[in-house]
Amino acid sequence: MTSQHSSDSLEGFARKIADMMNVNAVHNLRRLSGGASRETWEFHVGQEPLILQRVRPQRPGGLGSEAIVLREAFSHGVPVPELVIDGSISTDLERPFMIVKSVAGETIARKILRDEQFADARVNLVHQLGVAAARIHKVPTVGMPNLVEEDQLTMYQQILMDLGEPHPVFEIAFRWLEKNRPTTSATALVHGDFRLGNVVVSSEGLQAILDWELAHLGDPMEDLGWLCVRAWRFGGAHPVAGLGGYDELFDAYAHESGFRPDREVVRWWEILATLKWGIMCIVQAQTHLSGASRSHELAAIGRRVCENEYDLIRLLDEVSQ
């Protein structure tokens, strides 16, 4: 594609957005890096910075319930970007989309963990994450009728079986998880990918929680276990997001919710989360290897399967002591 053609296409897309929003023009439209299922664009209407997320071509499922969940979470005090337009069923931009207000801050985990400008933010971030998780789990689900509850253990057992690859460590982990499954104390809104990398942090601390496409109904301790997975510590020395300890997280959660998480229950979910991420790494590598989406990033993620196998061996050894 020539630069002129690219420029013309960008201008045409900007006009479509302006027409859809019923404004004279949008400015500074640029595409940002995004996930496998969404295009992400930044632009301005007047002085207001906005973010557009649009489903990529040939991606099934559209936006699902994400825009509705975002709206409900915002209205109940969860730190999330404010929804401006829900285009879940709109054809104005050809594919489902949503527009939210931009939130200033950083999302790159290694910068949050290491850069000096976030030194003060790091002091309180585990506490803020605990409070935010509790607020997520208090959001009433009656306004989100399309959310479903799936047994995570059964679902990922089936995914691994369908992959047809032998992974003895994963199979041992499944057996331990089945044998030691805790009783679910509640069913709540679960973010599904609650971790560094999906939060916006400024020098003052947590500003917003992003990426709600995996939101579902389930045990709220799932989010806390996912936050503690070693992969999501990004080299940090501490178990919760690389920043702090379990007690700090649990104390903050209890202060907001009135319920203090059980350490052993969260550990069960941390083990399941490690197993899930290992299986996700296989799936993403297969996406590349099958030719469905050729990507150096997807191929590289496939090499991380063994890291999760190692983490599972270590975790299972700890719980057997």
Rank of each mutant, 00 (worst) to 15 (best):
F97T: 03
P60V: 14
L177C: 00
I17P: 10
G245I: 05
G12C: 08
S3Y: 05
A73F: 00
D223C: 05
E307W: 14
L298M: 06
A73D: 11
R303Y: 14
L29E: 15
V265F: 14
H191L: 13
I85N: 02
W226C: 00
H5S: 13
T187Y: 11
Q321W: 11
G244S: 07
S88N: 09
E222W: 12
H191W: 13
A133N: 10
S90L: 03
L289G: 00
E307R: 11
I51Y: 09
S293Q: 11
E318G: 06
L70Y: 02
I172N: 15
I159S: 07
W226M: 06
T274G: 05
R30Y: 03
S75A: 15
E264Y: 08
R30H: 07
G143T: 09
D120M: 13
T183D: 07
R233P: 05
V169L: 12
N24G: 15
G87H: 11
P57C: 10
G225A: 10
Y253R: 00
E248K: 00
V305I: 14
A231V: 08
G61Y: 08
A188C: 13
T91Y: 03
G225W: 02
F118N: 04
V283N: 06
T40L: 13
F43E: 02
A285C: 08
D86W: 14
S9R: 12
H167N: 04
N198D: 06
